[in-house]
Amino acid sequence: IQIFEKGDFSGQMYETTEDCPSIMEQFHMREIHSCKVLEGVWIFYELPNYRGRQYLLDKKEYRKPIDWGAASPAVQSFRRI
Rank of each mutant, 00 (worst) to 15 (best):
I66S: 13
W68G: 04
Q12D: 11
L47A: 06
I66K: 02
R30N: 12
P48V: 05
Q54I: 07
G52Y: 00
S34P: 00
C20N: 04
T17I: 12
I43W: 07
H33C: 12
K6G: 10
P21M: 06
W42D: 00
Y55Q: 15
D67N: 14
T16D: 09
L47F: 13
I81S: 07
I1C: 14
W42Y: 13
A71I: 05
S10V: 09
R30G: 10
F9K: 05
A74V: 14
P21S: 11
Q12P: 11
D8K: 15
E25R: 08
V37C: 14
P73V: 15
T17G: 09
A70F: 08
Y62R: 15
K36E: 08
F4K: 03
R30S: 05
Y62T: 03
K36C: 05
Q2S: 12
E5V: 13
M24V: 09
M13Q: 11
D67L: 02
N49W: 10
K60W: 04
P65G: 09
G11I: 02
G40K: 02
W42N: 01
G7C: 02
K60Q: 13
H33D: 14
R51G: 13
N49M: 10
G52H: 00
I32W: 03
H33S: 12
G69P: 02
M24F: 06
H33N: 09
G40E: 11
V75D: 01
L38P: 14
Q54K: 05
Y45K: 01
I81C: 14
D19C: 09
P21L: 09
A74Y: 04
I81T: 15
Q76L: 04
Y55A: 04
L47W: 05
I81R: 05
N49G: 10
Q12W: 06
C35D: 00
L38Q: 05
G11Y: 05
G7E: 08
E18Q: 10
G7Q: 05
Q26N: 03
G7L: 08
H33A: 07
K60C: 11
W42T: 01
Q2K: 11
I23N: 07
C20P: 00
M13K: 07
P48F: 02
D19V: 07
K59Q: 08
L56K: 03
R63T: 05
D58W: 01
A70Q: 06
A74C: 15
I1L: 04
E25L: 02
E15Q: 11
D8Q: 15
Y62S: 04
S34T: 01
V41Y: 03
G40Q: 03
I66M: 08
M13V: 08
T16Q: 05
M13I: 13
K60N: 15
Y55D: 01
C20T: 05
I3F: 12
V41C: 05
D8H: 14
D67R: 15
I81N: 15
M29G: 13
T16C: 11
I32P: 13
P73H: 10
L38V: 08
I32T: 08
F44W: 04
P21F: 14
S77G: 02
G40A: 06
I1S: 00
E39G: 08
I43Q: 13
C20Y: 07
I23G: 04
R80H: 01
V37A: 14
E39L: 10
I32C: 11
Q76H: 15
L47P: 00
E39K: 10
K6A: 10
R53E: 12
I3D: 01
E61V: 14
K6L: 06
R51F: 03
R63M: 03
E46S: 05
C20H: 02
P48R: 06
G11K: 14
Q2N: 15
K36M: 11
R63G: 14
L38G: 11
G11S: 13
E18M: 06
G7A: 12
T17A: 11
L38N: 05
E5D: 06
Q26C: 04
S22T: 05
E15V: 09
E46K: 02
E61Q: 06
F44Y: 05
L56P: 15
C35V: 11
S34N: 01
G40R: 02
D8S: 14
A70T: 07
E31K: 07
K64A: 12
F27T: 06
I43M: 14
I32A: 10
V75E: 00
I1A: 03
S34K: 00
G52A: 01
A71G: 10
E15L: 05
P48A: 08
G52F: 02
S77K: 00
I23P: 11
L57R: 02
F27R: 11
E31V: 14
E15D: 07
Y50E: 01
Y62V: 03
